[in-house]
Structures are given as C-alpha cells and as structure tokens.
Design a protein around this nucleic acid. Structure first.
Lengths: 209, 209, 209, 209
DNA sequence: AATGAATGAGTGTTCATTCAT
DNA sequence: AATGAATGAACACTCATTCAT
C-alpha cells in the first residue's frame, strides 16, 4: 500500500491499538466460568471474580457491562467447549457405548454445578436474549448427543424403544450424578461410577441382536 | 402456675397428645420448607418467610436461632415426610417396578429443587452438625430405597449385576429429571415421563427370568 | 371495655407497641426535607441523611423503602407546611398587597432550591404516583394563591388585565429570586428586596381606583 | 521542526486566521454546553459528552484537565454568546419594551436549565477562579441589561422608582418562568407568555408621560 | 492527537442478626 | 410470645481520573 497516493491514504486508527483478545478479558472469562460453574450465579460476586484475577471490580466492568452479561459469555464459552469436545468424541470410530463412557468421564471430571440449577439461579436477572444465547449454546450440545442416538437407532446399533430426545436427556441427567455422589462420604472413582451407569443405560437400550 | 393447688392440676388429656410444637412454629416450618424447596437457600429471606406466615422477622428468631437452623429443621422435616411416604409405598404388596413408578410420580409431582443443589447452596453457612442432621434424614430415605433394591436382588426379582447403592442413587438421579425437562418447551406429562424413565432403568436391571 | 367477657376479649396486640409518630422517622423527614431543598435530589445521599440524623443508612431504609419514597414524603411535607402557612396569611384581614409581602418574606427566608429544578433533578427516579403526589401537594399551594388573586379581581381590589393563573405563577417565580441574588456579592436584605419586587408586580396589576 | 531551513518556513496564511481551536475541542465545547444546559452539571458524564462527540473519554481529558474546567469553558462560551445576542438586540433602534420582548422570546426559546440552579449544582466542584470566570461572563450579560435600564431611566423612557439592578434581576427572573410553566399541563405559546410577563413588568416601570 | 486500560471512591439497596420492650 | 428498632457487612453498579502507548 502506497501512502504517498494522496487520495487513498489508509488512515491508521489514532490512539493506542487494541490488543487482539485482551489477556485480561480472557482471564476474567476463565475465572468467571470456573466460579459460576463451581458455586452458581448468585454466590459469585464480581468482587471475587476481580480479586481472583488480580484486578479491580471496576476493571471487570470495563470489559463487561454487568454481571448477567459476564455470566452469559462465560456460560456460552463453557458450553461451546463442551460441545466441541463431545462432538470430537462422537466422531471417533468406536462403538457408541464407548463414546458415551468417554464423554461421561470427561464431563464428570470437570467439577461443576448442575446446569439447570444454575440457570434457575440466574434466571430472574438474565434478559430474554441472554437466556436464549445460553440455551442456544446448550442446544448445540444436546443436539450432537441426540443425533448420535438417532444415528445409532437408524443403524440398528441400539433398539428403537425410546425416543432419542428422552435418551439424550437421560444421558445428561446421569452425568449430574457425580455431584450427588461426590458430596457424600462414599468416594467412588469416576471411571468405576461411569462404567456402572452406562452399563445400566446401555442394557436398557441396546439392540439384542 | 402452682401445680400444688389441687384445683389446678393440669389434667393430662387422655389419648394421644397433640403435637407439642406451637402452631406458630409449625407454620414457620411448613412455610420455610416450601420456600426453601421452591427457590433454594440463599434466595429465601427470613423476611419473606415471616411475611408468608403473617408474623415478623423477629418472631422467626424467637423460634429459630438463625437461618441455617431454620433451614436444617425444615429440610429434616421434608426428608422425614418423604421417607415415610416412600416406605409406605415400598411396603405395599406390588411388584418393585410398580413401587418405583409410584414413588417417582409422587416425587416428581412435588415441585422442588434438586436436593443436592440446595445443599450446595446452603453448604457454607451450615455447621457440620447441621449438615450431618440433614444427611442423616436423607440417608434414611436412601436406605429405604437401598433396602428395597437389596431385597429385590436377594429374592431374584432383579438381577445382581449392579450394587444396590448405585441403583438407589441412579433412581434418585432420574427423579431430578423433571426439573431438567420442565424448564424447556417440550412439556411431557409426568406419568408418561416416569414410565419411560423407569422402563429404561428396569430393562437394565430386571432378571431375565 | 370489660376484659372479662369471654366473647369480646379485646386482644391487646402482642409485642412491643409502636411509638405514635416515631421521633426517628420525624428526624429523618425533617433532615431529608432540609437537605433536599438545600442541594437537590441527586446530591443528597442517604448516607448523608443518616449521618445528619446520627443513625445508620440501614435505619433510613427501615422507615422508607427507597430514596425516591423518602424524597416524595419530604417534599409533600414541605409543600403542606408551606400551603398551610400561606393559607393562614391569605386569610388575614389585611390588603392583598400586604399578604403577598408577608408570604414572600416567609418564603424567601427559608433557604431552598427552586422547586421545579429539583423536580427535574429527581424526575427520572420518581414513579408516576410519586410525582403525582408531590404535584398534588404543590397544586394546593398554587391554588390558594390563585384563589386569592381571583377573589381580588372579583372584588375589584386588583384589575382584570391578567389571568389569575399567570399572576400566581408570576408571583411564585418572583419568590425564587432570592436564590439568584443571594449567591452573589450584593447582599440585599430580604425585606427590602421583597418590597421592591412586590411594588413592581403591584403597580402592574392594581386597580387605579 | 527546524525553522531555519529556508524551504520549510511555515508560511503564515494571509487574511484573518482561522479559529485556532481544534475542531475536536470545539465539538466538545458545543456538545458539553448543550448537555450541561439541558440536564445540569452532575447528570452530565464525561462519557456521555465523549460519546456524543464520537470520541473517547480520554480524548476529552486531552483537551480539558477535568470536568469542572470543561464546565467552566462551556458556560463562559454560552454566556458570551447570550451577551452578544442581547447586546445586539439592545442596540436596535426600537423602544425598550420591544427589546425586552425580543430578548425574552429568544432566551425562552432556548430550552435550558435555570442558570442559578446549574451553578449551585456545580458549585462544590468549581474552584474559586472558575466560579469567578463564569460569574464574570454572566455579569457582562447582566450589565448590558442593567445599562439599558439605566439609559431608559436617564432618558425618561421608564420611571425611576426602582433601581436598575433590581430591574435587571427581575427581568432575568421572569425569563426562567418558561421552565416553570412548560413542565405542567397548561402549554402556553412562548410569545403569548412573554407578552403577558413583559406587560406586567412594563406597567410597573413605565413612565406615565 | 487520541486511545485502551485500569482504578478508587462513592451510591442505592438487601439482609441476617441483635436487643429492649 | 412477639415485636419495633437499629445495625454491619456485603453487593451491583457508576464515574471522574490517571497513565502508558
């Protein structure tokens, strides 16, 4: 580009250039996501997020207009990551049952709250648009599981006694069990727990061929 | 009151004595239980409990030392009631599968939060003793289900591929699905949902005899 | 009242009886009124009101649900007092001109902001009902002045060249002049200032009889 | 820049030089003046000024050291403009009464806050020097009115019953009435309102010759 | 010349808790 | 038995101001 051509001087934006994806913003997102998943919407104060990032509350507001907006962006990020990881596993050339086990282990290893509980907690403060955005990200996650069950039904890998919708929800419901069990004394290793859960589910849906 | 005066000996009423707890205290317990189950620990203010009872905040403190104590007593009450109802159903002379369905329908018909989510919400504010008290009440509920599964295994009604502990937890985990599904568009009637869920579980554990 | 009659025991309300017009509440009202009139809505923080009363911010909230409610009650109180004082003066058996002077002196001696400026300041935060309440109290003040001018026109005490509406507003507008003059160096004694102002107004409206 | 190099002597443009102030600074001044007059000192955030100018908050600080300085310069500018306009009208060869009407109409047509209310709003944050600067600009406006009244008294156009100081202030006070009336239901056309107000004032001060 | 980043001080509001009555 | 009064600690959010780039 020739800056000497009088008619087409490409005006370089004045002032300090913006950093691509500000590390501070990323730090807030990561910390927020972790905290929200850990203790829920209400119990996370912006002060705590800031402190965990080593910055000030006001700085959080520099990047996010308010708490519900931060929450939304954090949740969408988490959902997107979970979706990608799940989709990757589902596309592997292994039996569905093994995929389900891998997904369950991964999910349960991430300490986090039950998704619906958290949404209920945040519900009153989220705008319709924000709720929709999170739901959209969540639906993508569900859809990828739903499709996997649908395909398995079509290919005869599992029987067609149950709608893939219910199967997907059942699978997700089982994933929350880790929280139920973890908080009590009986510490069962994740792998073992997953194995048993999937076994139960699988016996109920497998094709007897 | 002078108990020595012959005329004023407080005659102990014959028959089963009424519950000794003052009606006000009972009212607080009932209201608190409902509200806590409805919206969780943090979102229930003592002011709201008082107002719902038609009394003042200070009156709540007259009967309960603090919020966590009220919470504890409410939860223990709820658990005890649920335990009794469950035990009654389990003692009926019908197949285990039908019992599970009856229990599931009853549980899901009571709109309420996921138990574990609520405990996590309240966790930081509960003393160890309070947590233990609630857990004890909850354990009684689980035990009664656990015993039912154990008996079914012993009697051969279901297979012995899975530990009764996991079965009990799986069963309880499935019970929380109502919340997951209800919050979304697809409104499925409780009975139908229960039927499908128990069907899946049952196929996984029934004895093939 | 006979408390022995079993059917009509006048239940004495339980608990600590409420003080008639709580001195604390009165103190808040007085202090708030003074501060609001002195520096306007936004610049008065509830913290400052509380401190001026020797209590805590939370205590202010014990008596008033929020800032706008406190503001409303303060303003209505001020307006009511001003109305009563004005009405009293207007009912005295002296010439209208003298009444106007007395009113003006009283008004100007109370240091306060221009009423409309303050309302504009508070406007965005007041509910429609609150605004209406204040306006109602203000209207009573204006009406009593308006009626006085109307009567004077009817009785021929002043000419009928101007509508009583405009006369009332002109009179009130002149009352705000103290603020304009006071803030500058030229300190003119209130009485002298009032005399000149009313003189100008009066010459414009008196009947030449 | 080396001014010794013969080829780069910055040639001073012939004729009247353009206003030296950068267009950005002028934009800030204009926008600030408008906003301050519209909603007062406190309610104008530097963010809003910047956004209205299409620049950043930090840029405002590049041209003005702080908010009170911006306010001061804005107000002085407004006052100067008002002074010039008023002086122009007063120098026209028409009767004083007509001049007053023209001035009043012009003033009332510019939607803005009462000047004194705004000064009181900003008072605590202005340095003595800043306050003085604004007052000086305002005084020039008052003086030109004051002189007009003085001249009218000297020439016998109006009577000498009132000091020109009070007359000037009375005139200015009447100018604020628009705000008082506009905010209520009775919408009176500016011209009609002005006519009535000046009529009252005029009857009170005219010479009966 | 102009900006992105960051902050400290303050504001309205809520709520569990205490205490004298 | 029940209540009115009062409080301290926390929280979401705003804004003028600073500074390196």
């Amino acid at each position: 580009m020739n800056t000497n051509q009088p008619n087409s001087i490409p005006k370089r934006k004045p002032g300090r250039p913006k950093v691509e994806k500000s590390p501070t913003k990323m730090s807030i997102l990561r910390t927020g996501a972790f905290l929200f998943m850990e203790v829920g919407y209400e119990k996370v104060s912006l002060e705590s997020v800031a402190k965990a990032c080593g910055i000030t509350k006001a700085s959080v507001y520099y990047y996010f207009n308010n708490k519900s907006e931060l929450f939304t962006e954090c949740l969408v990020a988490v959902m997107t990551i979970a979706h990608n990881a799940t989709a990757t596993i589902l596309s592997e050339p292994i039996p569905l049952k093994d995929k389900l086990i891998k997904i369950a282990i991964r999910q349960m290893s991430n300490a986090h709250l039950d998704f619906e509980s958290m949404m209920r907690d945040a519900a009153v403060e989220l705008s319709d648009e924000q709720t929709e955005n999170i739901r959209k990200a969540e639906k993508k996650l569900h859809d990828v599981v739903h499709d996997a069950f649908q395909n398995a039904i079509n290919s005869g890998e599992i029987n067609n006694h149950h709608s893939p919708i219910v199967l997907a929800h059942t699978f997700v419901a089982l994933l929350t069990m880790k929280n139920h069990l973890n908080l009590k004394q009986q510490q069962i290793p994740v792998e073992q727990l997953v194995a048993q859960l999937i076994e139960i589910l699988w016996t109920g849906i497998q094709n007897e061929g």
